[in-house]
């Protein structure tokens, strides 16, 4: 791997200027490397805190048992229900967010007048700027009672509530990245579709989607990453109940919310503390896999 080198000392440039140039180059290189160092540093730290428990970890029970009783004697650390909680909330959120997000991206990029587009983009970005604790608050105090009354269910804070919030939170990401992907499709394609007499529907589905599919997939996966990692809103809106959900309106508990709720009171270095860090490793692995997939998919676009 060759790095761009500072040019040979040109005539008329002072020694100091060259040194300065090299210093700047070093600084920029450090900035670049720091991102890698931070990611591995964080992974290393999280893993190191959880590692002592690995020796006695029953992986099967950890991943598939739903007995989450960390403060009982003896304690049970079955994160299966939590993992399922995270996956089910995320899946449900994506079922809601993907059609809306991609639909909005298509509208913004293809059909809206320039003025509408600017307004829409600003508003959508504003949606991304709402802090997650505010979403959680909305889920608890507005959506909760509403869901309870509209769907005639006993408890308003549940999987559906949290999924709705997560959908709202990941739509802006899906829209802005999806729109970029659609914009990247050359106009000559659109002109060709028009020339062939394709309707708008046909243009979008037969031409635009296949042409931009990698970018759109990346948009969706980044939305998934956002939903998996979200903590505060799901802590407040899922109901936080470590059970295997049997309906859309059952309360669930996610991996992230478990860490947020319990780490504060877990004695440092205790088993519970270590297991919470292992949950962190599990989450890290999940989001890493999602982001890596997104990345490889985007790389796929460039190669074409």
């Amino acid at each position: 791997m060759s790095l761009p080198r500072s040019p040979e000392r040109p005539a008329g440039r002072g020694r100091l200027a060259v040194l300065f140039e090299q210093a700047i180059e070093l600084l920029i290189r450090l900035c670049g490397i720091s991102a890698i160092v931070f990611v591995f540093g964080i992974f290393f730290f999280v893993f190191r805190e959880g590692a002592p428990y690995l020796a006695q970890l029953d992986l099967g029970a950890f991943l598939f048992s739903s007995d989450w009783y960390p403060s009982n004697d003896p304690a049970h650390y079955g994160a299966g229900a939590l993992l399922l909680g995270t996956l089910s909330v995320t899946l449900l959120a994506m079922l809601m967010a993907v059609p809306f997000g991609l639909g909005a991206a298509v509208f913004v990029s293809e059909f809206s007048a320039p003025r509408t587009r600017e307004v829409l983009k600003i508003v959508i970005e504003l949606l991304a700027a709402v802090p997650s604790v505010v979403w959680g608050f909305i889920g608890m105090s507005v959506l909760g009672p509403l869901i309870k009354d509209v769907f005639q269910v006993p408890l308003g804070v549940n999987m559906f509530n949290a999924a709705l919030l997560l959908a709202l939170m990941s739509v802006p990401i899906i829209v802005s990245i999806g729109e970029d992907a659609l914009k990247a499709v050359p106009d000559s394609y659109r002109e060709a579709a028009l020339a062939l007499g394709a309707t708008r529907w046909q243009t979008v589905f037969r031409m635009l989607f296949p042409a931009a599919k990698n970018g759109l997939l990346a948009a969706v996966l980044l939305g998934v990453g956002r939903a998996i990692g979200e903590t505060m809103a799901v802590l407040m809106a899922t109901g936080h109940s470590a059970r295997i959900p049997t309906s859309l309106f059952d309360p669930v508990q996610t991996l992230t919310a478990t860490i947020a709720a319990e780490l504060g009171e877990a004695r440092q270095g205790s088993e519970h503390y270590q297991v919470l860090f292992l949950i962190g490793v599990l989450l890290f692995t999940l989001t890493f896999a999602v982001n890596l997939t997104a990345d490889l998919v985007v790389k796929g676009i460039r190669r074409k």
Partner: peptide
């Protein structure tokens, strides 16, 4: 309450006993 709060601790001991186990589908608040 979340399973390591002092209140949860006390409630569990006082109501279901030291060896008892709370139902897993409690809705836990923070």
């Amino acid at each position: 309450r979340q399973n390591n709060s002092g209140t949860h601790h006390y409630f569990k001991e006082a109501v279901v006993g030291k060896k008892g186990v709370l139902r897993p589908d409690c809705v836990n608040q923070n």
